[in-house]
Amino acid sequence: MASIETTAKHENEPHRDDLAHRLNWLRAGVLGANDGIVSVASILVGVAGATTNTGNILAAGVAGLVGGAISMALGEYVSVSSQSDTQRALIEKERRELDEQPEEELDELTAIYESKGLSPKTARSVAEELTEHDALAAHLSAELNIHEDDIVSPWSAAFASAVAFTLGAVLPLLAMLLPPAGMRVPLTFAAVLIALAITGAVGAWIGGAPRLRAAVRVVLGGALALAATFSIGTLLGASGVF
């Protein structure tokens, strides 16, 4: 009865692997939004440094948003596709080995548990029980630390990356286009640096790192990018390019 109650009590809690998987996705989303903020804001303040024409600023910002989102999606698609192909190949290799040489695979699994501190007898018993339950899952977990359900869809990853970048890019666009012309650049600087402090702290919190240090690092990097592009835009504007 006690074991049933304990299971029911914790049935809604995420397993460690599942929680880590979700946190990785969340962290990737935060980083994608951070890229969108910095990339588009840098383009906007650069153009705003050269001209006050709203149409030019809007065109540059929208181009940066669309191009950046597509670039992020393509990069994520290629990266996750390569990872997924490798994982599938490893899973098929393990499945083939279990079909062709089950005894050798059982010995290998036993040796793995022995190396983790179990006695030979206990390690053999654990290996046999796990093999009877799900041989492939047992070997994937013990040998490769992967699961069949861990394979991520490249399309899902690409879509999530593009959405995160776009959401981040909307902030500097609004900060640049909504205020009066004379307030655009300072308000964009302020909004972007505050947003970067938040994303830096959240990303560090998800990864278990010090939040203040991460926030300061991201803010300084963003400030440097904004200052550099604004200075270049101002110089180009003064030279008569615009």
Results as ranks from 00 to 15, higher is better:
residue 216 V to D: 00
residue 117 G to H: 04
residue 51 T to G: 02
residue 99 D to Y: 10
residue 194 I to S: 02
residue 122 T to P: 03
residue 39 S to N: 02
residue 154 P to F: 07
residue 3 S to R: 09
residue 204 A to M: 01
residue 173 L to E: 01
residue 113 Y to P: 03
residue 2 A to W: 08
residue 81 S to M: 07
residue 67 G to E: 04
residue 17 D to S: 09
residue 46 G to E: 00
residue 37 I to A: 01
residue 239 S to D: 06
residue 129 E to M: 05
residue 57 I to V: 08
residue 56 N to F: 08
residue 195 A to L: 04
residue 174 L to C: 08
residue 144 L to A: 12
residue 226 L to V: 15
residue 58 L to R: 10
residue 212 L to I: 15
residue 176 M to L: 10
residue 199 T to N: 01
residue 45 V to S: 01
residue 223 A to K: 11
residue 122 T to M: 02
residue 65 L to K: 06
residue 9 K to R: 15
residue 32 G to S: 03
residue 164 A to M: 06
residue 174 L to V: 15
residue 22 R to D: 13
residue 40 V to M: 00
residue 241 V to A: 02
residue 22 R to M: 09
residue 227 A to N: 11
residue 234 T to R: 11
residue 233 G to W: 09
residue 100 E to N: 12
residue 22 R to E: 13
residue 138 A to H: 13
residue 113 Y to R: 03
residue 153 S to I: 13
residue 60 A to W: 10
residue 80 V to R: 06
residue 49 G to E: 02
residue 184 R to F: 07
residue 12 N to P: 13
residue 125 S to N: 05
residue 42 S to E: 08
residue 227 A to Q: 10
residue 106 L to Q: 15
residue 171 L to M: 09
residue 79 S to N: 11
residue 238 A to R: 10
residue 7 T to R: 13
residue 139 H to L: 12
residue 143 E to H: 12
residue 149 D to G: 02
residue 49 G to K: 06
residue 214 A to L: 02
residue 236 L to Q: 07
residue 157 A to L: 02
residue 75 G to Q: 10
residue 145 N to D: 14
residue 79 S to Q: 12
residue 58 L to K: 08
residue 33 A to I: 04
residue 19 L to N: 08
residue 91 I to W: 10
residue 192 V to S: 01
residue 220 L to T: 14
residue 132 E to C: 06
residue 21 H to I: 06
residue 8 A to P: 09
residue 228 A to D: 09
residue 110 T to R: 07
residue 109 L to Y: 10
residue 74 L to W: 08
residue 199 T to K: 00
residue 128 E to W: 05
residue 135 A to C: 15
residue 41 A to T: 03
residue 79 S to Y: 10
residue 51 T to Y: 11
residue 161 S to Q: 05
residue 149 D to S: 04
residue 175 A to W: 15
residue 102 P to M: 03
residue 220 L to G: 03
residue 124 R to G: 14
residue 24 N to G: 13
residue 31 L to K: 01
residue 162 A to V: 07
residue 91 I to R: 10
residue 94 E to I: 15
residue 179 P to W: 12
residue 191 A to K: 04
residue 153 S to H: 09
residue 108 E to G: 06
residue 112 I to T: 11
